[in-house]
Amino acid sequence: MNLPNKLTLLRVIMIPFFLVFMLTDLMGENGKYIALTIFALASFTDFLDGYIARKQHLVTNFGKFMDPLADKLLVCSTLIAFIQMNKISSVIVIIIVSRELIISGFRVIAADNGVVLAASYWGKFKTASQMVMIILLILDIQTPAFALLENIFIYLALILTIVSLIDYLIKNLSVLSERSNK
C-alpha cells in the first residue's frame, strides 16, 4: 500500500476519534480543541494524499475509490454530529448529504462507462465553505458576531452545495443517457 493510500486510511481512522472528542465531555472544554485539531489534520491528509499521488504518479484504483469516500465520511459524520449538538438544522444536513450521494452515484455510473468526471470550481468552493463552516461550528465561540459568522457560512455552504449540484448535473447529465459498455 502506497503512502497516499495510507494517508486516506488514516483519515478514515481519525473519524471515530474526532467524534469521541466532539460528542463527549471526555476532555471537558479542551475536547472541542482536540476535535478541531483532529479534523484539521484529517482535512490536511486529504490535500496531502492527493498531492503526493499526483506528484509521484501513485494514483491507484483504491485511492480513486477511497479518497472521496473518506472525505464524505469525514464531512457527513461531522454534520450529523452537529445535528445531535443542535448546531445545524437537519434539513441543511440532508441537502448536503443528498448532494454528496447524488454526485457519488453519477461518478459510479460514469466510471462504469469509462468516463472520468472532474471536480468543478463550484465543487471546490463548496468544499472550502463547508470546511470553514465546520471549523467555526467546532470552535463555537459564544459572541453575537461569531454566531453571525457561523450562520453566514452555514448558508453559504448550503447555497454552494445546491449551485455545485446543479452545475454538476447540467455538465454531466449525458452520463445517464450513455449506454453501458457491458
Rank of each mutant, 00 (worst) to 15 (best):
F47Y: 15
G114N: 08
V97N: 02
M27D: 02
M66G: 04
V97H: 04
V91R: 11
S120H: 10
L58G: 14
D25Y: 12
T60D: 09
E100P: 10
N113C: 13
V75E: 00
V93P: 08
K72S: 11
D46C: 11
D112E: 15
T45M: 09
S77Q: 04
V75G: 02
L58T: 06
R107N: 03
L101N: 02
K87I: 05
S90L: 11
V108C: 05
A42K: 01
A119N: 07
V75R: 00
S120M: 12
L41H: 01
V116S: 13
K87W: 09
L79M: 12
L48R: 04
G28S: 08
M66D: 01
T45W: 07
A35F: 03
A81P: 14
T78C: 14
D112R: 15
M85H: 09
D112Y: 13
G105Y: 08
L74P: 04
V108E: 04
G31C: 02
K72L: 13
I38D: 00
Q84Y: 15
I88L: 09
I88G: 04
L36D: 01
V91A: 14
R107P: 09
V93I: 08
A42I: 07
A53V: 07
I83D: 00
L58R: 08
M66L: 13
L74S: 02
I103E: 03
A81N: 05
Y33V: 07
N61A: 09
D46F: 01
A70Q: 02
F82G: 04
L79G: 01
T60C: 12
D49F: 12
S104H: 02
A42T: 03
D67W: 00
S90T: 10
V115F: 10
G114L: 06
I52W: 02
I95P: 04
F65C: 10
Y33I: 08
D67T: 07
L41I: 14
L26V: 12
A110L: 08
L101G: 07
M66A: 13
V115W: 09
D71Y: 08
